[in-house]
Design a protein around this nucleic acid. Structure first.
Length: 923
RNA sequence: GGGCUUGUAGAUCAGUUGGAAGAUCGUCGCCUUUGCAAGGCGAAGGCCCUGGGUUCGAAUCCCAGCAAGUCCA
């Protein structure tokens, strides 16, 4: 990054000088002539601990308000926070920064910002430093990023570097910070395809703010190189700042750790539950914590080696052993981590996140399980929801969490039970495996432990302790988790959607879409703007292009007397492209022609019914299941539609019936379906993020649909009244992931058809059984029971038959070398009967039975008593050879073998050969 | 989105190279005991998840589906 980027008037006008840090080599700006280091850890240690850098101690709410108010007074508009689950993004699951709220449409310039400039305090979740949370004294999974943003472009500049620095410095000043202690470090920033110069604001050794001047985008042909990637200048340039609310509070209090600063009451409560006295009043104790935090600030403690090094240094500086120190620190660190993690869960679940085995839900589960493990280690025996409740009680500024608490509690109870089940199951499996290895005297291979974790979810620590109980050693390498990750590493290819004739389409104006204003009109006139191969673009159209889970309209385009069939309709950057099926050699259509379009009404209406029904079902489901229900995907077809819903347990039949009933009531109420194009920001303020059930559409204006009580941003075609949807019939549910339920249903004529199909199933069944539909269940039950009884009886009869045969067969035995040999054909006996007969015959030790029958080809069974086996008989070999004679195969063990073949003509030959072999074996 | 694991008696699980469906607990009956706990003897209880395929033969191998678990991005 060029040095020029940091030659900012604010610095020169305010007596700053630029220096290079002798430790890290980075450049920074300071008012202090005598300062030499940059002010960042590890070049400077924390100096604010026990020595606050701001005038007044503040709590989170007070600090947040102070910040927002400061920027409001500086002409910024305060806007509401966004959810921590980033539903409007398809590239990230969690909101990781305030700027994430405005990506991608605002930052790219497609959509104007809700206000400009604006200020916000955005709760963010980052799980990347999970291991350091609790240990480092400063890491959190959840934090609020306070920010002021200005969105500039070549036409209009709000403010840029100078004013940003002025505002930041002014804020610190108004908090009573010592100007001489503040440094600004140059640090080029890149991330998410953008980049730009950046300044880090440091005070007391702590980084409290990051000021990013985002003006570059990734571009292979760009002429600016940052960290190995090429970038070029953007037309938009954005002030992207981030001030850590929690760090500001910490700095204002000077507590030993950030955790003690931001949620002291919950930390204390948990210490009590864990049976640890948190002696913040105890000087020796706070000394240890402070030392630890200061030194931890200098290193990355997520590395095991570093953690040990940290312990060593702290131990020596307070004159104790590493072991002693660890025994003091570990429980405390766990309490910190639990407090942090439960706060994270409060936000995740409070914002409607559902634990799952995939996507954002998996992250929630990960955090839940980590927390439960630590709680167990500390002996904290309260439901995890109780700790979440403590957080909610201290967060009155988030009333929505309070409202959702019942569901949150249920989800957590559910997860707790699931995890307990998993551990139980895992422990049993591990015990078995451990016993197996103990028997063979081997150590348990690492592979087994990895498998246990990877496919059964058993943490390696638990595997190890279970193994130890059984008495087998396990070596856990430090890089265990990266070994697991290696197993999964593979390249991933994403398919880019290719736009046909992209350059021609780019030159065309956006197509006027008539279907919004006139949803019931099916015929229109249009002028041909362009034709390429089978694709036709008009100036306006009634054809709905595929989108929002609704398939494309079909129909016809007529030019004079030529009728063209439209088989697909797509939209690319606002240009609707109609695709027709085969065309004549000579296309009777050219630019400027007037065409008459007719939409296939039946198809369109079926889609519209299913689309409106989808909104109705979504609303009904939320009614029945709770407010955590979100659409996780949807697709409409002509004969049915499906809707994926986030829900943490299986939907029961009763709930399903209820949803169906409510949905049909909405239909019968025949409410008007309202739609309105609204300013995006206005709609968001009015209806919230509930709008975005089906993802976030681009554009300044969005179409807001109201169907019954359901309000969503939706670009599909709908019925004008709910009554037009007709009956709605839920066909089935499927669990497509843990935490996502799929509903399949039909509406209108499709529903009638579906019901008729179901009915005919019942009718056919009852006709087959010759009973009325009402009697079907009981009759089927009876048949099933009878079938079971008959099967048992059949088995019994075969045994009896076998028994009856035995007495006959035994008299025909031929004695060879003291062994009685029975080699016979048993007519019409199946394999089971032969087996039972042979089995009974060989109850006598000196008997060998070779039985053969003709049934579905040839069946052969041979058995030998113990005595016979001792004398060298191996019926496995005999049957094997016999079977090949009848065109099949067979085998078994020396005392029992079965086989058969497809060719009955050679049965006697096979039997003779069997006797021959037997004789050989007995000699 | 991808990977891995698992579906067998009411429950928890065995079931070897494809070759006679098992154990433990629970249930029921009888015996023992003043009674209980327990013990002894015996019995009932299986569409081996579903549907295809391979094979003389599949709980076992292959494919598809359904269901459950789990890890990763």
């Amino acid at each position: 990054m060029l040095e020029d980027e940091y030659q900012i008037d604010f610095f020169s006008d305010n007596g700053f000088i630029r220096k290079q840090c002798p430790k890290c080599g980075k450049y920074f700006w300071t008012r202090d002539q005598d300062r030499s280091t940059c002010g960042d850890a590890p070049c400077d240690p924390y100096s604010f601990i026990g020595n606050p850098v701001f005038k007044k101690k503040m709590e989170l709410a007070e600090m947040r308000e102070f910040y927002l108010k400061f920027f409001e007074e500086q002409d910024h508009t305060r806007i509401d926070r966004y959810p921590v689950i980033a539903r409007w993004r398809d590239d990230i699951y969690l909101t990781i920064a305030s700027i994430a709220d405005f990506q991608p449409f605002v930052t790219s310039g497609q959509v104007p910002p809700p206000a400009n400039p604006l200020t916000i305090s955005q709760p963010c979740i980052r799980l990347s430093d999970l291991d350091a949370v609790g240990r480092s004294g400063r890491h959190l999974t959840t934090f609020e990023m306070m920010a002021h943003h200005a969105f500039n472009n070549s036409k209009k500049e709000i403010y840029w570097k100078d004013h940003t620095l002025e505002l930041c410095d002014g804020l610190l000043d108004s908090l009573g910070a010592d100007p001489m202690a503040v440094t600004y470090k140059e640090e080029p920033w890149a991330g998410g395809g953008n980049a730009g110069p950046c300044v880090e604001t440091l005070i007391g050794g702590l980084e409290v703010a990051t000021l990013v001047f985002m003006d570059l985008k990734q571009d292979k042909t760009g002429d600016i190189n940052i960290k190995g990637d090429q970038y070029s200048k953007m037309d938009n340039y954005i002030v992207d700042t981030g001030y850590g609310l929690e760090r500001f509070v910490w700095a204002s209090k000077g507590s030993p750790t950030i955790y003690d600063a931001i949620f002291p009451s919950i930390v204390n409560e948990l210490m009590g539950l864990a049976g640890i006295e948190h002696e913040l009043e105890n000087e020796e104790y706070t000394n240890i914590l402070s030392q630890n935090a200061r030194l931890a600030g200098l290193m990355d403690v997520s590395e095991k080696a570093n953690l040990f090094e940290l312990r060593k240094q702290v131990a020596s500086s307070i004159g104790t052993t590493v072991e002693k120190l660890s025994s003091i620190m570990e429980p405390v660190e766990s309490v910190y981590a639990i407090t942090d993690h439960t706060r994270c869960l409060t936000f995740m679940l409070g914002d409607g996140g559902i634990p799952s085995n995939v996507k954002a839900g998996y992250l929630a589960r990960l955090v839940i399980r980590r927390t439960l493990r630590m709680m167990k280690d500390l002996g904290i025996n309260v439901p995890i929801s109780e700790i979440v409740r403590m957080h909610i009680d201290t967060l009155p500024e988030y009333p929505e969490f309070q409202e959702n608490f019942d569901v949150i509690e249920d989800i957590l109870a559910h997860e707790e039970r699931k995890f307990a089940d998993t551990l139980d199951r895992g422990r049993r499996m591990m015990e078995k495996s451990a016993r197996h290895y103990k028997k063979s005297g081997e150590n348990i291979p690492l592979e087994t432990i990895i498998d246990m974790y990877d496919s059964q979810g058993i943490p390696p620590e638990i595997s190890k302790s279970v193994a130890a109980e059984v008495g087998v050693e396990v070596d856990l390498p430090d890089n265990f988790y990266s070994l697991v990750a290696d197993k999964h590493s593979k390249s991933e290819e994403k398919e880019e959607k290719v736009i046909p004739f992209a350059d021609r389409i780019a030159k065309l104006p956006k197509t006027k879409r008539l279907f919004y204003d006139e949803p019931n009109r099916m015929e229109f006139e249009g002028v041909v703007l362009d034709i390429f191969e089978k694709h036709i673009v008009l100036d306006n159209t009634l054809f709905y292009p595929e989108g929002g889970g609704q398939p494309a309209d079909h129909g016809t385009l007529t030019v004079e007397d030529v009728v063209l069939n439209v088989v697909d309709t797509q939209i690319y950057n606002g240009v609707v492209v109609h695709t027709i099926d085969d065309i004549e050699d000579e296309l009777h259509i050219r630019k400027g022609d007037l065409v008459v379009g007719r939409v296939d009404e039946e198809r369109r209406m079926a889609h519209a019914r299913h689309h409106t029904a989808t909104h109705i079902i979504n609303d009904a489901a939320r009614d029945v299941l709770g407010s955590h229900i979100w659409q996780a995907g949807a697709q409409k077809f002509r004969d049915r539609a499906r809707l994926d819903l986030s829900h943490y347990k299986r939907i029961t039949q009763e709930e399903l019936d209820q949803i169906e009933l409510i949905a049909n009531r909405t239909v019968m109420e025949n409410k008007r379906v309202l739609s309105d194009w609204m300013d995006r920001t206005e709609a968001e303020q009015k209806y919230g993020f509930r709008l975005y059930q089906g993802g976030v559409p681009p554009g300044k204006m969005i179409r807001v649909m109201q169907v019954g009580n359901d309000i969503e941003a939706c670009a599909g075609t709908h019925c004008t009244n709910t009554g037009l949807v007709g009956p709605i019939k839920i066909l089935k549910t499927e669990r497509i992931q843990d935490g996502v339920e799929r509903l399949e249903y039909a509406a209108g004529e499709a529903a009638i058809k579906a019901m008729q199909d179901l009915e005919s199933l019942v009718r056919d069944s009852s006709e087959t059984l010759r009973v009325s539909a009402e009697q079907l269940p009981s009759t089927i039950g009876r048949f099933f029971d009878e079938w079971k009884d008959l099967k048992k009886e059949n088995t019994k009869l075969k045994e009896d038959l076998a028994h009856a045969r035995v007495s006959q067969l035994i008299t025909d035995a031929e004695t060879i070398n003291d062994i009685r040999v029975i080699a016979k054909t048993v007519p019409h006996a199946d394999s089971d009967e032969l087996t039972k007969t042979a089995g009974e015959l060989t109850q006598e030790n000196d008997v060998v039975a070779v039985l053969i029958s003709e049934l579905d080809g040839v069946k052969i069974v041979a058995a030998a008593g113990d005595e016979a086996v001792k004398n060298g008989v191996n019926v496995g070999l005999i049957v094997k050879e016999m079977s090949t004679i009848v065109g099949g195969g067979g085998g078994g063990r020396p005392n029992m073998a079965r086989g058969g073949g497809t060719d009955p003509s050679n049965m006697t030959g096979a039997l003779d050969r069997g006797i021959e072999l037997l004789k050989e074996q007995l000699e």
